[in-house]
Simulated assay, not measured.
Amino acid sequence: MKKEDIKKAIEQDEKWDSGELGQEESYVERVEFDQAIEEAINQSARLRPISIRMEEELITDLKTIAEHHNLGYQPLIRQLLKRFVVSEKKILKQRAQAMEIKGPEDKRIEDNDEFADQVAKEA
């Protein structure tokens, strides 16, 4: 490749990057997105489209927050849900561990309550 060709390619790349080229509507065309491609992308990313109803104000707030973080609002929602789920799973695990530790004591308390109920009925 000649030095002139390389220089020209670099200049053209810079023009594309700066927006000097390609910003006119004549460069834009709508491309149909094949359903099979979309499904392959979703599967590879382990994503599944869902539908959810939310208040308009909440959507507006999420879009504002997402824009502040240079994100789309749907990726922001995924992040928020993921954080919530991770946090809740930790809490549930801690509760389950606490119940394992307290388990025998709780059973004794339940047995004592049943015994107290029987005594009260007999009295």
Rank of each mutant, 00 (worst) to 15 (best):
P49G: 05
R53V: 11
N112A: 07
E39G: 05
D5S: 10
E56Y: 11
L76S: 04
P75M: 00
T64G: 05
Y73T: 10
V119Y: 01
E56A: 09
L92R: 15
I52C: 01
Q12P: 00
L21D: 08
A123M: 14
E20N: 07
Q79W: 13
K121C: 13
Y27G: 06
A98M: 06
E105I: 09
V85M: 14
Q94I: 05
D117G: 14
V85H: 07
R46K: 15
S51P: 00
E122I: 13
L81W: 02
I59S: 15
N70E: 13
G19Q: 09
E55Y: 08
W16H: 10
A45G: 04
D17W: 08
R95H: 15
L80I: 12
Y27D: 13
I65Y: 10
Q23Y: 11
R53L: 15
Q12H: 01
L21S: 02
E56Q: 11
E25H: 01
E100F: 07
A40M: 07
K102Y: 08
Q118K: 10
S44V: 08
V31C: 02
L76K: 02
D13H: 14
L92V: 15
H68W: 07
N42F: 01
N42P: 00
R83N: 06
Q23K: 06
E56D: 12
T60D: 12
Q43C: 07
A66Q: 07
A96I: 13
D117F: 06
M99F: 12
I109F: 10
I50T: 11
Q79R: 14
R48I: 07
